[in-house]
Design a protein around this nucleic acid. Structure first.
Length: 934
RNA sequence: GGGCGUAUAGCUCAGGGGUAGAGCACUGUAUUGACAUUGCAGGGGUCCCAAGUUCAAAUCUUGGUACGCCCA
């Protein structure tokens, strides 16, 4: 801790020091056994991850809330930990192996998993270090990991319970298969992209001499995936389609494979699309799977023509010609050294055999042109991790009956038991939850929670918490093999709000901190995580995991584009912290976070908040050099001086506004409130108002010692209130200044650090007279400065003034210590108060030429003799007069409207009348002033 | 195809039935005195368009346009 503040604020010099101090002293979670709990859980970042700008936003918002609640005295707990992130982590370790010409399959499963653990211990701490740099006040003493022993216990119990309740089941159906990662993934992990593709038309010859009504001996089908015809099992037409009515129930013989397949009637076939007939590949298309089932084909009998890497393999009926086996599903020859993919070869063979119907297109010149296929935009599914096209693939997987689990959360959001902020997300939430599909939770990976299911030789499954238990279910002597698959990462993170607190054990922590109070997350994980926590919270705990869900947007690049590594427009939050300080970055995030909108990155704005920190630093230095140190009371000190009373009142209003903003989770409003107060009120006015009392000025008599003492006390108190209120947003600089203020006047703050200080509670009575006096002073000063600027009067020129008919307010301002402040701020003075001066002490004549400055009800005449050309002052007055006349006319028109006077709210009419009176009087006054100038 | 969001100053954004605000940028000006990472002052807006409701619409309603996102 420094004795004297350095002249410039350097964030890097204080951040690490304070963070370490807080963490070492256990200040992120001081013991408060009797305090009201406040709990949030951090969305566990991937253990492989590093801090990106979205984390910075998400965690800043959470830290603001947690620090705020901690300052308000609550037993604030911010649960932190990391997610094992099955696919991502396994990919990272495999990639490193590849760099060493090594691969996963060179190891046994156990050895590979050991290697991942090793990697986790060595490199898994990056993101947690980075969260510390951001200043996040999480409870690191209880850092969690989704594969910790106790967490794993929670995962297994949940699986087994869901299974026993019939909410998890094994099913053979099409899944989204990632041929690169060779695992199933859930619907949510599939991202659809529009790609340019083609639409091919084929002839499928009719069997047994059957023809269509128009005599054709074939059915035309169209497809965007010609290669799948190798596993076609039917052709579907719409039941009401007259063109095909005669052939429903008949067969076609497929080209290439020679497979004989039925023509079925099914509503899936769209008569408007293409020929109205569609080829059906139940094993490789989600719609066709349903058509196939309706046509009576059991899942187990559906033909599969692709292996796990999506290369062609033999179908169970053995009809795929040799030359296709092993081919890539759709890679093109020129991309692969001359080997055609299955798609290309299918087209080639169909064309050779006359089964391809060319597409007739017109060239730009209007000439007809024959193409193999019709160009088309195709919505293509990609795996979000592997980045390759997803293949619908027929496998056995574990599914969670999400529809049943979703029922209660839907109700809870509808009833308001769970509030989603901003509310506009509710519709999206309902739309997804009400149409939710079974959740595929098994993954063909090695890293993750192994599924607690064992199979015997007959394929019978035993789900149990342990192998022993499974064995006892199966009976002694039965050989059991555990399911090799692991669970979807999101299955375990869905348990985060309670498994991190000890569940399934009944711990005190769980008792006290579940349900949590709030969840803050990006909207991008609303379905992945938030919704699933609701389901699992309800299932395991019988209630919602939190009553409030706050969803924030994305941080976008400066041009509004989504940040992505591939675009190279990613902004590194650590770089911003290095450049501007963590406090500035945090304040930026808060100030930009308005509900329901994404944040565009703006380095200039971050810089602006760095400047704000510097401003506060320098204001504190000013206080220190004038003997203003730490306050010793939470309540506002007794104050007599108007400026002191005024700032106390301003603090009070600021706390109220801040509390209101925080209650509504309006981070932008909260940040702006404290920003404006600190800079525009405290620095720009209050410190300037009290300067004459503190700084020696030969022209002014020194202020009474009692007033000086009071001022020091109030100023120190007000600064402390700023530090407390600003602390959630800018924890580092505020803690540094808090300590420095304590050091200055020997207030021991080592046992009362800012992070666990008390939230302001001024409870002060402020006289309206005092605040009015300061408002008067500010108004006069502002008007005088504007007039001086407009007339081009040199800033240093001091101007004598006369107040011909001072109001009681003016009398009060000048009778107190206001005169010195006004003279200093406006460079106007000394003032002659004519009303105050007796007959025998008449000052000189009213100054001429004079400029008229108003404040409240007063008109002050400022002597311009020898200072300025009269014409310029006339121009100024004329401009002001024109403005007043315009305003008055508008108001006069409104007041002349009978409808307005009769129907408008009385307050509106009153206000219009008052404004009209004011502006007409002003216009009159200015007319008179112009006349006086001649 | 369905849903959602956004449109306000040059830029990034608040606000909101009674003629508009912030930060940055811009212009003028000030430098021994907390701070030039500063002070003071100033210019700058048909609040996307149209219709409706209303005494009054930038604000509410409806329709449109543009951009963005999500789902199918």
């Amino acid at each position: 801790m420094t004795d004297q503040l350095p002249t410039t604020f350097s964030p890097a010099d204080i951040e690490a020091r304070w963070y370490q101090h807080w963490e070492e002293k256990g200040l992120f979670r001081p013991e408060r056994p009797d305090a009201e709990p406040f709990t949030i859980v951090n969305p566990p970042p991937n253990v492989t991850g590093s801090l990106h700008i979205g984390h910075a936003l998400d965690n800043t918002l959470q830290d603001i809330v947690v620090r705020y609640e901690r300052l308000r005295g609550k037993d604030a707990l911010w649960v932190v930990g990391t997610d094992h992130a099955g696919i991502a982590t396994q990919m990272v370790v495999e990639r490193q192996m590849e760099e060493r010409q090594d691969k996963r399959t060179n190891y046994s499963r156990e050895d590979f998993v050991d290697k991942v653990w090793e990697w986790k211990h060595e490199s898994g701490g990056t993101i947690t270090r980075q969260l510390r740099r951001l200043g996040c006040s999480m409870d690191w003493s209880r850092e969690q990991f989704t594969m910790d022993e106790h967490f794993t216990k929670a995962v297994l119990k949940t699986f087994v319970d869901l299974y026993n309740d019939g909410l998890i089941y094994r099913d053979k159906r099409l899944v989204n298969w990632d041929p690169k990662l060779k695992t199933a993934i859930s619907d949510l992990e599939v991202e659809t992209q529009d790609l340019k593709g083609s639409f091919w038309h084929f002839k499928y010859p009719l069997e047994d001499g059957v023809t269509l009504a128009d005599g054709r001996d074939y059915i035309e089908v169209a497809t965007t995936r010609p290669e799948t015809m190798l596993a076609d099992m039917a052709v579907a037409v719409h039941p009401t389609d007259e063109r095909y009515a005669s052939v429903v129930g008949k067969h076609v013989v497929l080209p290439i494979t020679g497979r004989k397949v039925p023509i079925v009637a099914d509503e899936h076939a769209d008569p408007e699309l293409g020929s109205g007939a569609v080829k059906i590949t139940p094993g490789h298309d989600f719609n066709d799977f349903e058509v196939g089932k309706r046509a009576g084909i059991a899942a187990a009998d559906m033909l599969n023509m692709l292996d796990g890497e999506a290369n062609v393999c033999q179908t169970s009926d053995g009809l795929v010609p040799e030359e296709f086996l092993g081919l890539h599903r759709f890679k093109r020859a020129k991309e692969d050294g001359g080997t055609p993919g299955a798609r290309e070869l299918v087209i080639e063979r169909l064309k050779e055999q006359g089964f391809l119907i060319p597409h007739i297109a017109k060239t730009k010149k209007g000439e007809e042109q024959e193409l193999d296929a019709e160009p088309r935009t195709i919505a293509t599914p990609f795996g979000d991790r592997g980045g390759v096209v997803i293949e619908p693939w027929l496998t056995d997987q574990w599914y969670v009956d999400a529809e049943k689990l979703a029922a209660k959360p839907i109700e809870q959001v509808k009833s308001g038991e769970i509030e989603i902020i901003p509310q506009s997300w509710e519709k999206t939430f309902f739309n997804w939850m009400e149409n939710i599909q079974p959740w595929c939770v098994s993954r063909q990976l090695w890293w993750g929670h192994r599924i607690p299911a064992w199979f015997d030789d007959q394929g019978e499954v035993y789900v149990a918490l342990s192998e022993e238990e499974a064995q006892s279910k199966a009976g002694a002597g039965v050989t059991l093999t555990q399911d090799p698959d692991v669970l979807d990462t999101w299955f375990s993170s869905a348990l985060w709000p309670f498994a991190t607190l000890g569940w399934p054990n009944e711990t005190d922590l769980l008792e006290k901190h579940f349900p949590n109070n709030l969840l803050i997350s990006g909207f991008d994980i609303l379905f992945f995580w938030d919704a699933r926590m609701m389901m699992m919270g309800q299932y395991n705990m019988g209630q919602a995991p939190w009553p409030k869900l706050y969803l924030h947007g994305l941080v976008r690049a400066a041009d509004g584009a989504k940040m992505s590594k591939s675009k190279g427009n990613v902004v590194d939050p650590l770089g911003l912290i290095d450049e501007f300080g963590a406090d500035a970055l945090r304040f930026f995030m808060a100030a930009m976070e308005s509900q329901g909108r994404d944040i565009k990155m703006d380095n200039e704005r971050v810089k602006g908040y760095r400047n704000f920190a510097t401003k506060l630093w320098n204001a504190t230095r000013f206080c220190q050099s004038n003997g203003i140190g730490a306050s010793r009371t939470l309540a506002a000190p007794e104050a007599r001086l108007a400026a002191n009373q005024w700032i106390i009142g301003e603090v009070q209003q600021t706390v109220e506004a801040l509390d209101a903003a925080m209650a509504d989770l309006r981070f932008d409003a909260a940040a702006n409130t404290i920003y404006q107060f600190t800079w525009s009120r405290f620095c720009d006015w209050y410190l300037e108002l009290i300067k004459p009392l503190l700084v020696k000025d030969d022209d002014q008599p020194p202020a009474p010692p009692a007033i000086i003492a009071e001022t020091r006390e109030v100023a120190g108190w007000a600064l402390d209130q700023i530090l407390v209120m600003l602390h959630p947003f800018m924890p580092f600089i505020t803690e540094e200044l808090w300590a420095a203020q304590g050091n200055l006047n020997g207030t021991d703050r080592s046992t009362y650090p800012l992070i666990t200080a008390k939230w302001p509670n001024p409870r002060a009575e402020v006289s309206k007279e005092a605040t009015d006096a300061i408002d008067w002073t500010i108004e006069f000063t502002t008007n005088a400065r504007a007039a001086r600027n407009e007339l081009g009067i040199a800033p240093g020129t001091k101007l004598r003034a006369v107040v011909p008919d001072p109001s009681p307010m003016a009398m009060k301002v000048f009778a107190g210590n206001g005169a010195a402040a006004i003279e200093r701020l406006s460079k106007v003075g000394p003032f002659m108060m004519i009303g105050e001066i007796g007959e025998n002490n008449v000052p000189g004549p009213t100054p001429k030429p004079a400029m008229e400055i108003t404040a409240g009800d007063d008109v002050i005449l400022v002597d311009l003799a020898g200072v300025i050309d009269v014409a310029e002052e006339k121009a100024r007055l004329e401009k002001a007069m024109a403005a007043s006349i315009k305003e008055a006319k508008t108001l006069e028109g409104r007041l002349g409207n009978a409808n307005f006077v009769e129907r408008a709210k009385p307050e509106a009419v009153e206000k219009a009348k008052a404004d009209f009176a004011h502006h007409s009087a002003e216009a009159e006054r200015l007319t008179a002033a112009l006349a006086r100038l001649g």
